[in-house]
Amino acid sequence: MNEEHLTKVILAPVVSEKSTLVGEKHNQVVFKVLPNADKREVKRAVELLFDVKVNKVHTALVKGKRKRSGRYIGRRSDWKKAYVVLQAGYEIDFVSVE
């Protein structure tokens, strides 16, 4: 894996009530990742970008919601999220990350 590809694997952090609770309780961080990214790529990307040690990675495919605008029905895109379990003593502070 080259570093250029690893920097593109993570798209954004998922900021929600559920992800905040998981982060506080289990020392996990939730990211939106590329749909074709595997767990090894996500682990390497997080370790490279945030300078932390990753213990485990769990991934989940999220199905896009059906949305309606008037008489037209559309659908949001499917996406993939990764629950990254950090080793003890490490944490990611998104405020200070540049």
Score class of each variant (00 low, 15 high):
80 K>F: 06
58 H>T: 07
55 N>H: 13
52 V>W: 00
48 L>G: 06
25 K>L: 12
41 E>N: 13
55 N>Q: 15
90 Y>W: 05
53 K>M: 06
74 G>R: 12
54 V>H: 00
45 A>M: 10
38 D>A: 08
96 S>H: 11
55 N>A: 15
38 D>S: 08
61 L>S: 14
79 W>C: 12
81 K>D: 09
19 S>F: 05
23 G>M: 03
93 D>C: 01
23 G>P: 07
93 D>E: 06
62 V>Y: 00
70 G>T: 09
72 Y>P: 02
93 D>Q: 01
47 E>T: 04
77 S>P: 15
83 Y>A: 15
67 K>F: 04
13 P>R: 04
76 R>S: 08
64 G>H: 09
87 Q>E: 15
53 K>W: 01
68 R>Q: 13
91 E>G: 02
46 V>T: 04
50 F>A: 11
39 K>C: 05
93 D>S: 03
73 I>A: 07
20 T>I: 08
29 V>F: 00
17 E>L: 06
29 V>S: 00
88 A>H: 05
41 E>K: 09
26 H>Q: 14
44 R>C: 06
40 R>C: 01
96 S>I: 04
34 L>Y: 04
28 Q>T: 14
77 S>W: 13
36 N>R: 10
45 A>R: 10
23 G>W: 02
18 K>T: 14
16 S>W: 10
48 L>D: 05
52 V>A: 03
73 I>F: 06
95 V>Y: 03
18 K>M: 07
69 S>Q: 05
81 K>C: 09
56 K>C: 05
86 L>K: 00
89 G>P: 07
89 G>F: 09
13 P>I: 02
69 S>W: 00
34 L>D: 12
77 S>T: 15
35 P>G: 11
47 E>V: 02
20 T>K: 12
42 V>F: 01
26 H>Y: 12
43 K>E: 05
54 V>E: 01
32 K>Y: 10
32 K>C: 11
31 F>T: 01
75 R>Y: 12
28 Q>H: 05
80 K>T: 13
81 K>Y: 10
55 N>M: 10
54 V>Q: 01
19 S>N: 08
44 R>A: 13
17 E>W: 03
20 T>E: 12
88 A>W: 02
83 Y>S: 15
53 K>F: 03
68 R>C: 07
65 K>H: 04
17 E>N: 09
49 L>E: 07
66 R>C: 03
59 T>A: 06
31 F>W: 04
12 A>N: 13
57 V>N: 00
23 G>N: 09
